[in-house]
Amino acid sequence: MIAKRTARLTTLVALPAALALAGAMPAAAHTGSHSGSHQAAAENGSYQVDLEQLNGSGASGTAMLTLKGRDLNVKIEATGLVPGQPHAQHIHGSTDGHDFHCPDASADKNSDGVVSTAEGLPSYGDINISLTTKGDTTKKSGLDVTRMPVADKDGKVSYERVITVSQKVADHIKDLHVVQHGIDTNGNKKYDFNKGKSELDPKLPQEATAPASCGMLAGAAVGSMPVGGVETGSGGTQGVEAPGMLAGGAAAVLGAGALGALAVRRRRAADSLR
């Protein structure tokens, strides 16, 4: 549910790299290292990401990432998402050699039946790119719902955007992966507090921020050696932005009555990009 028009979530998280290292969700250990000197030229091309459900969401889809130099064309077709609701989506992972991947049910450390955002981050890493429909694409826009795609009445999302990425992202594109957020655990087709409060802000329901699907680039595998080798550390939730930073945006998810208007605005914004 979205509140009145001006509400927005301006920050998802600002977790330092140390938060999301493999210690909290151990990745396979490796020996040796890969040279990144050839990577920029080698990574130009198209890569398929098969999005698979997390948290029993029923969501699935395909993302196609086409890299030409530093221009990344992202196309996503997804189904099974919460109808009429905004779905934050990002490219997660490391450009510094950390081995991240999609989480499984074992990431649910408090055994509440939901892998929350904070529980999933040690597996899939911090945000590299926010897949907004226009404007800023940094992690600061991670939950700016006014610029995230809204699922249609059938729970489908179609998204396409060309984003100019950093050279590090271009060089390490195979180390990254796509995550979509927003689940409906009790089948009432909206975000509510059925699974309690989000750890990002107690004003937000867990359903609004929990991951719904995740996919790795075809050819990448759990435990694969990222360019630059694997670094290890310990994970946790330290580094999540203070709840006050998100307070203004909480109303954007919890308020009633403006969802239809937002959906129309989002569709118009998406049409303007085509």
Rank of each mutant, 00 (worst) to 15 (best):
G182W: 06
A151K: 07
K140V: 10
F193M: 01
T237C: 15
Q206Y: 00
Y159N: 09
Y159S: 11
Q238Y: 10
V222Y: 14
T164C: 14
V169L: 09
Q167F: 03
P205H: 02
K174G: 06
G235N: 12
K156C: 12
K156H: 12
G196W: 02
T146V: 04
E231V: 15
G223V: 05
D152M: 09
F193V: 12
G142D: 01
G215V: 01
K168H: 09
G196P: 05
T185N: 06
H177T: 10
K197A: 12
L204G: 05
Q238E: 13
K168W: 03
L200D: 07
G135F: 06
G215N: 02
D136N: 14
K189Q: 10
G182K: 09
D171P: 03
A208S: 15
I173E: 08
G236F: 09
A208I: 05
L143S: 15
K203E: 11
V179L: 07
C214R: 04
T232A: 14
G236R: 14
E207T: 04
G239M: 05
L143Q: 15
Y191K: 01
V222P: 10
D154C: 09
G135M: 11
T209M: 02
K190C: 14
E199K: 11
G235A: 06
D136K: 05
I163Q: 00
K156R: 15
T237P: 13
D175W: 00
A208F: 03
P149F: 06
Q180A: 13
G215H: 03
T209A: 04
S234N: 14
V222H: 06
Q238D: 13
D171H: 09
L176D: 07
G215W: 00
S234D: 13
V157Q: 01
R147W: 08
T232R: 13
T133I: 15
V178E: 06
I183C: 12
S213C: 11
G228V: 08
V150N: 12
I163H: 08
S234L: 12
D154I: 03
E160P: 09
D152Q: 10
K189F: 05
G239H: 07
A170E: 05
K139Q: 13
N188P: 11
M148V: 14
D144C: 11
T209C: 00
G196S: 03
V145F: 14
H177E: 11
S224F: 00
Y159F: 07
T185P: 03
T164W: 12
V240R: 14
S234A: 11
G229V: 03
N186A: 04
D184A: 01
T138Q: 08
H172N: 11
S198I: 03
G229Y: 00
V150G: 07
S224N: 02
V240Q: 12
